[in-house]
């Protein structure tokens, strides 16, 4: 979805698309850093520091590190250049940057996003008696070559958006017994879990 947005934007505003791409690369770097516990979700770090940190832990391969550094340099030159940069140069950089983004997504790390922020969870298989305190959050797990979804209990006041990157955190002081839900895609009643800890991940 992020790649589509950048491509759409490039048709009318190539420079804005380049900035968006740069932000996306930085965001995905942060997600990788948090997913590999290199960084806490509430911790701040400059993109350059993050790249160094992840290189030192061998999470990013050497040419990916070099590419990220060079991309930032080129982006900065384009933004701060006093003479007008041709659209063809910007398109070339956009093209290379998108290739870099795809490469970054090949880093073998499991990333979790919100697939559905909250659906009702029931105590019975007929889906009549709803849990009052929690709802079901459907998470989407991806790592290169694999993907799956899984549903977890989360407090009703927790507010995520579809597509948010989240941390892998559960609180086993709060455990929830057997539950069912109505699958929002197929509309079929399904078992959610037999007994699980509460999901307390936060947005990255």
């Amino acid at each position: 979805a992020a790649i589509d947005k950048i491509v759409d934007l490039s048709a009318t505003e190539p420079l804005a698309a380049l900035l968006k791409l740069s932000q996306t690369l930085e965001k995905e770097l942060k997600v990788l850093a948090v997913s590999t516990a290199v960084l806490r979700s509430n911790q701040r770090s400059s993109p350059r520091q993050l790249i160094r940190l992840m290189a030192s832990k061998n999470i990013l391969p050497p040419h990916t590190v070099e590419s990220l550094d060079q991309f930032r340099d080129v982006r900065n030159k384009i933004i701060h250049e006093s003479v007008e940069i041709s659209h063809s140069t910007i398109f070339k950089v956009l093209d290379i940057g998108l290739q870099l983004l795809k490469t970054l997504r090949q880093v073998p790390v499991e990333v979790i996003t919100v697939n559905h922020p909250g659906i009702p969870i029931y105590k019975d298989e007929d889906c009549v008696e709803e849990y009052e305190e929690v709802k079901g959050i459907i998470l989407y797990y991806t790592s290169p070559g694999t993907e799956m979804t899984k549903i977890w209990p989360v407090r009703k006041n927790v507010d995520f958006q579809k597509g948010d990157y989240v941390t892998k955190d559960w609180d086993c002081n709060y455990q929830w017994g057997q539950a069912w839900y109505i699958d929002p895609v197929t509309d079929k009643k399904k078992i959610a879990w037999t007994g699980v800890c509460e999901f307390v991940g936060v947005r990255v």
């Binding site: 391969p61 050497p62 040419h63 990916t64 070099e66 590419s67 060079q70 991309f71 340099d73 080129v74 030159k77 384009i78 250049e81 940069i85 140069t89 070339k92 950089v93 290379i96 290739q99 870099l100 795809k102 490469t103 090949q106 880093v107």
Partner: peptide, 22 residues
């Protein structure tokens, strides 16, 4: 000219990074 050479260098490095990730 400097920018163009930087872009070309970037393209080569990203290609290496892509091969490295396979």
């Amino acid at each position: 000219v400097e920018l163009e050479s930087n872009v070309e260098q970037l393209r080569e490095t990203v290609e290496k990074a892509e091969r490295e990730s396979l």
